[in-house]
Design a protein around this nucleic acid. Structure first.
Ligand SMILES: [Zn+2]
Ligand SMILES: [Zn+2]
Ligand SMILES: [Zn+2]
Ligand SMILES: [Zn+2]
Lengths: 150, 150
DNA sequence: GTCGTTCTGTTATAATATAACTCGCTTGGC
DNA sequence: GCCAAGCGAGTTATATTATAACAGAACGAC
């Protein structure tokens, strides 16, 4: 069983120390967005996050949440899930990694697993003389729980 | 050097025979959208395609182009590029494949290479009991030409 | 013919994302 | 103390991407 409470604590502790070390400001809005994303290993759309912020009186317009997400993305604390146009807190903060996502189409849970370097993308790129800067690896399907439930 | 004229001819021939075989209707709008995407190995947004169609008097509203794209996607003749929210004609039509895309951020050229099965995504999924249905593998960076030009 | 299906046309709107400008706060120089 | 620079947040407006919902044409099945 996954101890999510300690999972959240660890992520927040990492975020604070990382920002302190790098001279980045983890402001209330930014922290709150991270906390919301950390509540579950799920991807949330920017406007879902925005609704939450609004309920809490923390900034009611799109730019607020998009700026916070932009900060968290650049700090490596959050990943963008391209398939869903949504965002998920990094589950491996601090361990420099190329994320791979397994996205359940039923419960929307997102499993992030670290990928070793030197996979297909890298080999394909090398053959083509292509210089990779960022990569996206996402799979959609059914997670173990939803397979059993089906 | 890439013989793109014959590349287009082959893709169109495949599209026609594939649709005939499967009982799918490659109507004028659908064919034209495919032709537009085949003009270059580039990704086009739905509204870029729509502008082209409009200029040609072929259907001026978003649903027209989205429906044509939906058809072409399901027929496997076109791929969606999640990173760009855009679409590119399949460069390996007919050869059942899992596409991998190398996307140049400068010239927007898209290189499609076929991926062998059994990569990182599949291994990660197996370990998690996750049943993959679709995968997205995209890399953004600089293509060989743009690296030289830089 | 007329019914069901498929494709297209059209209007309207939803969902996602950014531009551009304002303000308040901090901080450091002077 | 005062000012300027920088940064973050607030706000308005708008751009970009995508879909819902319904109306009309075209076609073959019966
Ligand atoms: Zn957890
Ligand atoms: Zn991560
Ligand atoms: Zn070609
Ligand atoms: Zn392809």
């Amino acid at each position: 069983m996954h101890d999510h409470a300690s999972c959240i604590r660890a992520a927040l502790a990492h975020a604070e120390s990382h920002c302190a070390r790098e001279g980045l400001q983890l402001t209330p809005v930014r922290l709150r967005v991270l906390e919301i994303l950390l509540e579950g290993h799920r991807a949330l759309g920017a406007y879902e996050i925005l609704d939450r912020l609004r309920d809490e009186g923390l900034g009611g317009q799109p730019p607020v949440v998009y700026r916070a997400l932009d900060f968290l993305l650049r700090a490596g604390l959050v990943h963008r899930i391209e398939t869903l146009n949504a965002f998920a807190a990094c589950a491996h903060a601090g361990k420099g990694h190329v994320p791979v996502f397994l996205i359940c189409r039923q419960c929307r849970h997102v499993i992030e697993t670290p990928a070793p370097a030197g996979g297909q993308l890298e080999r394909a790129a090398e053959g083509a003389g292509f210089a990779i800067e960022t990569t996206v690896r996402e799979a959609e399907g059914l997670c173990a729980d939803c397979r059993i439930a089906a």
